[in-house]
Nucleic acid binder design. Structure first.
Length: 186
DNA sequence: GGAACGATTGCT
DNA sequence: GCAATCGTTCCC
């Protein structure tokens, strides 16, 4: 069971790949009208800022990406293909537009719908555009730290759906818990 | 103003 | 393999 309470902002104010690793096994917690939904993060992807051609921030500062360019510890949520939402956590110092995409959860509490894949994750957790820019240092929507006593192995693979991004497409920036049944794909 | 496209998903 | 579906980006 997760120990309740958000990780401190300093957790997000670090190298993005380190944050991505430490998010694996952590708990995403969202209070939806009194129902507290909890999932264990089992798959993530790192997006490394303006130089990363797969990252939204590679287009520079726009109305959509302003959250990415802001301080760490905030949610960046966007609409994809007109019908799903994707949630990221903003990392690194303000102006360094890095983030980690949450791709799959293992259900822990009150997760009735499938949450493997970024679109399904947001649907199951009740996350939508209202949560764009949400401060994750808040009691109703946050990430709680993983249990350090539980050992796990991390697998690194190329990211999903970014074939257009040149050399960035092949970089092993997708991370998941080895052997976990809730990862979105092999 | 408008065309092209996307960090997805599910159905054929 | 391909359609659904719409906001963002970029070009005219």
């Amino acid at each position: 069971m997760p120990c309740l309470g958000p990780v401190p902002r300093s957790f997000y104010d670090r190298d993005t790949i380190d944050v991505a690793h430490d998010l694996l096994g952590a708990f995403l917690v969202h209070d939806v009208a009194g129902e507290v939904r909890v999932g264990k993060i089992v798959e993530v992807e790192a997006y490394l800022g303006e130089l990363d051609l797969a990252a939204h921030s590679s287009r520079g500062l726009t109305q959509r990406t302003r959250i990415l360019f802001g301080p760490p510890g905030f949610a960046y949520v966007y609409l994809i293909y007109g019908m799903y939402f994707c949630m990221n956590v903003v990392t690194e110092r303000e102006g360094n537009a890095c983030a980690v995409l949450l791709r799959a959860l293992e259900p822990v509490r009150n997760l009735r719908d499938r949450s493997q894949g970024p679109g399904l994750l947001c649907r199951a957790m009740g996350i939508d555009l209202r949560h764009n820019g949400h401060d994750l240092e808040s009691p109703d929507f946050f990430i709680a730290p993983r249990d350090e006593n539980e050992a796990h192995q991390v697998v690194a693979r190329p990211r999903i759906g970014v074939a257009y991004s040149g050399i960035w497409a092949a970089k092993p920036l997708r991370f998941y818990l080895e052997g976990n049944r809730y990862i979105s794909r092999k």
